[in-house]
């Protein structure tokens, strides 16, 4: 279609680059708990939420042993806030009781990362991914035959 209306008034208007807080940059540049978990003790559960349309696609892996989260890793496609929040959530959950996967409220990370209000939806996706891990654990717990234990 050679003739059309502009999709919006400013064809190539762009805002100034977002300036990120140090807490975000530190975790974006060297995120703790990034990547898949290697082999180890306990049972592995995974959860994923979001998508490109949500501005974040986040997946967590948690290894549960003795009722505790002995290892947790994340993978995130998203803005630097999303990467930093995923990393910080993993930091907070490492070593916690497994119930924390279902109870952790990522919104408490917002002030620590100086998260702009319009980015809070990213935290809800992180919450969904962690809840998905919790449900996976719960399902495994209720169906012991389906639980696969990985080698230490």
């Amino acid at each position: 279609m050679p003739f059309a209306r502009p999709s919006h008034g400013c064809a190539n208007w762009r805002p100034p680059d977002v300036v990120y807080p140090d807490a975000v940059l530190a975790r974006f540049d060297a995120p703790a708990h990034a990547g898949p978990l290697g082999s180890g003790p306990g049972e592995l559960v995974t959860g994923r939420a979001g998508g490109v349309e949500d501005g974040i696609d986040v997946a967590f892996e948690a290894r549960i042993d003795g009722g505790r989260i002995v290892a947790i890793g994340f993978r995130t496609w998203g803005c630097p806030y999303s990467v930093a929040a995923s990393s910080l959530a993993a930091e907070r959950l490492q070593g916690q009781a497994v119930q924390a996967l279902g109870e952790f409220n990522p919104l408490e990370l917002a002030p620590l990362l100086d998260l702009p209000p319009e980015r809070r939806g990213r935290l809800l996706c992180i919450e969904d991914a962690l809840r998905s891990c919790w449900r996976a654990w719960d399902n495994k717990r209720l169906s012991p035959s389906s639980v696969s234990r990985s080698d230490p």
Binding site: P6, S7, H8, C10, A11, N12, W13, R14, P15, D17, V18, Y20, L25, F28, G55, W77, G78, C79, P80, S82, V83, P116, E118, R119
Partner: peptide, 30 residues
């Protein structure tokens, strides 16, 4: 993701080909 791409390259002064506003998430209409 575009914002992370620009953040990872922040030592290079360049422009995004997008108009991805933090508020609107609106990509470049060009």
């Amino acid at each position: 993701e575009g914002e992370s791409l620009r953040c990872g390259l922040r030592q290079v002064a360049l422009s995004s080909g997008s108009a991805c506003a933090a508020e609107s998430g609106e990509p470049s209409s060009v």
